[in-house]
């Protein structure tokens, strides 16, 4: 009887330890997770990262720290993230440059060095003009090369449109929206393509007029503004953000992260934040996000080779 009891206890211990080790394997994460943001604190990508981190912490049960590592339009931060141990404890924020920079040979790493986790938003380009040009016909404007544009170089929004219209506008190189918006307001350029969130104050005040958006469907933020597609120019391009882990991160870990971040992204608090900041929510699962980036890669490569 006693022997039987000992045997039973031994069996119990073994099974508990086996169970425990099994549990340990699936116990990711067991320490804090860091997200490398390749852009400065206070910017749009940083804001999304900090907000999602706040909502994902309870789902993962571990603190998430944000590390800003800027430079080279994102290349520095991504190079660092790609080198990190692929264990799911180091993640990074993606933006369109993860695809674009490596096509232009400006970054040692591209999206293929990573495993996507989840895409959060996609803000389509929105063509804005100053108040005095409110009555311009946008199709006419895009087909008339006497109108000047102000945009980043290379201006992927404008290149996408030009690929459809064949009309080449003079494009004066400006930095971010902080430079493009005053350039349009001051009449130094005729139009610029920005994200609605970047110009919302001026749009609400009627100082900047959005003429068209470069998305499949109209935007909730500016429901009266037509899409370029409706107007007969099928040009779509947006600025998107998502989360990724270095290549080689175990499938199970990616699945846990995808699950936790998807739950966090679907919380009302996060959605409210995105709405307030005028980010256009467009969740894409790990697999869809990958396909999306492949499509972007093909389109951009084609555009730049022209």
């Amino acid at each position: 009887m006693r022997k039987l009891l000992v045997l039973f206890i031994c069996l119990a211990l073994v099974s508990v330890s086996v169970f425990a080790s099994g549990a340990q394997e699936s116990a990711f994460p067991e320490r804090n997770i860091q997200i490398i943001v390749p852009y400065a604190a206070g910017g749009g990508t940083d804001a999304v990262a900090r907000a999602i981190a706040q909502f994902a912490e309870p789902h993962l049960g571990q603190p998430i720290t944000i590390i800003n590592k800027t430079g080279g339009g994102g290349a520095v931060g991504w190079a660092e993230a790609a080198k990190a141990r692929p264990d799911g404890y180091t993640l990074t924020m993606f933006a369109p440059n993860i695809v674009n920079l490596s096509i232009m040979n400006l970054s040692p790493v591209g999206y293929k060095e990573f495993e996507p986790i989840l895409m959060f938003n996609n803000d389509p380009g929105t063509i804005v003009v100053a108040k005095k040009n409110a009555n311009l016909d946008v199709v006419e404007m895009l087909n008339d090369d006497s109108y000047k544009s102000g945009g980043e170089n290379p201006n992927f929004y404008l290149l996408t449109i030009q690929a459809q219209t064949g009309v080449i506008h003079q494009d004066i190189p400006y930095g971010g929206a902080a430079e493009r918006v005053p350039a349009v307001l001051g009449g130094h350029v005729d139009f610029a393509i920005v994200n609605v969130g970047e110009a919302k104050g001026q749009i609400d005040a009627g100082e900047l007029i959005p003429l068209a958006v470069m998305s499949e469907k109209r935007l909730d933020a500016v429901p009266n503004v037509p899409t370029l597609k409706e107007l007969g120019i099928d040009a779509q391009m947006g600025s998107w953000r998502g989360l990724a882990a270095p290549k080689g991160t175990p499938k199970e870990v990616i699945a846990i992260l995808e699950d936790a971040f998807t739950k966090a992204a679907n919380e009302q608090g996060f959605k409210d934040f995105m709405k307030k900041a005028a980010f256009n929510i467009d969740f894409k699962s790990s697999a869809d996000f990958w396909t999306f980036m492949e499509e972007q890669d093909v389109a951009t490569t084609k555009m730049l080779s022209k």
Binding site: A40, A41, G42, G43, G44, D46, A47, A178, G197, K200, G201, Q202, D204, A205, E207, F273, K276, A277, A278
Partner: peptide, 17 residues
Amino acid sequence: AVLLGGLIIMGLQPGPL
């Protein structure tokens, strides 16, 4: 730029209005 982020997150849209 950081302040702008702060304003927007608080639901305040800077601009003429």
